[in-house]
């Protein structure tokens, strides 16, 4: 069966407003235009690839920044009164300002500022977008991790240290694994938000999924299938990651069984 043949045929009927044309045939023409004509599905695929790439990069930047900021903020807040470190205080203040600014301004504004002011001469829109998303995500991840570290019973740290383990080992083997288990649902949430927020980098020209959909819309003057299609792709990606997160959570819950 040759789809292209029927497409040409029914499209011709559509343009000449042929009364014989049925509704499902119109649907077919619009669908074919949105995904199959000129192998447009490849554009979506490329866009989805960029979306994943940007998400992965932003995630790495975000987690690295988040861990750094969370550890600094926690270390500062858990100092004993009267025994405060001045340098740590200054770094802590910088971290606080960072979190406040990022959380206090819209993501769209941050992307526009990064793309059109700070990196206005750069043509690598995707990279600039990923960087912005990473910096943005870092502030939220930092607060999530900080919550996990602070929620843990201080007795765990004390027990580790009383055995002669140093601060770093106690964090690595005792505090962080338990905190990670506690924050995994929030972290998964943040990851999903990040994945979907990559759609915003299209405003500075990032070549991701939504940009691909909009390119198709501009060509075909038909918005429905490109938008529904990209929504579907996001949904499938999120479902896959939710599933993987569920597996990881079940594995980490192993030590809870009684």
């Amino acid at each position: 069966m040759d789809l292209a043949y029927y497409y040409e045929l029914w499209r011709g009927m559509m343009l000449s407003k042929d009364p014989m044309l049925e509704g499902w045939q119109v649907f077919f023409v619009r669908f074919y235009q949105a995904f199959l004509e000129n192998d447009r599905w490849l554009q979506y695929l490329k866009g989805a690839g960029t979306t994943l790439y940007v998400t992965a990069m932003a995630l790495c930047i975000g987690v690295a920044l988040g861990v750094l900021v969370a550890v600094i903020r926690t270390a500062h807040d858990q100092q004993r009164p009267g025994n405060r470190n001045f340098v740590l205080g200054v770094i802590n203040l910088v971290c606080k300002v960072y979190v406040t600014i990022i959380r206090g301004t819209p993501m769209m504004v941050q992307i526009l500022i990064m793309g059109m002011v700070i990196f206005s001469s750069s043509r690598n829109y995707t990279l600039v977008g990923a960087l912005t998303l990473g910096i943005n995500s870092g502030a939220y991840v930092a607060e999530i991790i900080r919550g996990g570290l602070m929620s843990l019973d201080p007795g765990q740290m004390e027990a580790g240290r009383s055995l002669g383990l140093n601060y770093f080992d106690t964090m690595r083997f005792i505090v962080v694994p338990q905190a990670f288990k506690a924050i995994l649902p929030s972290l998964g949430n943040e990851f999903i938000v990040l994945l979907k927020d990559t759609s915003m980098i299209s405003v500075i020209g990032g070549q991701e999924l939504i940009k691909a959909a909009r390119d198709v819309i501009n060509r075909t003057y038909d918005a429905m299938f490109p938008l529904l299609g990209s929504a579907f792709v996001y949904l499938v990606l999120v479902l896959i990651f939710s599933y993987l997160q569920g597996i990881l959570e079940r594995r980490l819950r192993q030590s809870d069984r009684r």
Binding site: Q156, L163, G164, I174, Q178
Partner: peptide
């Protein structure tokens, strides 16, 4: 302090075993 703590054991009221191990 780590070297000194290695020579002193401590037992806590709330046990403080590591639940993840």
């Amino acid at each position: 302090i780590d070297a000194i703590r290695r020579q002193m054991g401590m037992v806590f009221q709330h046990f403080n075993l590591f639940p993840n191990m």
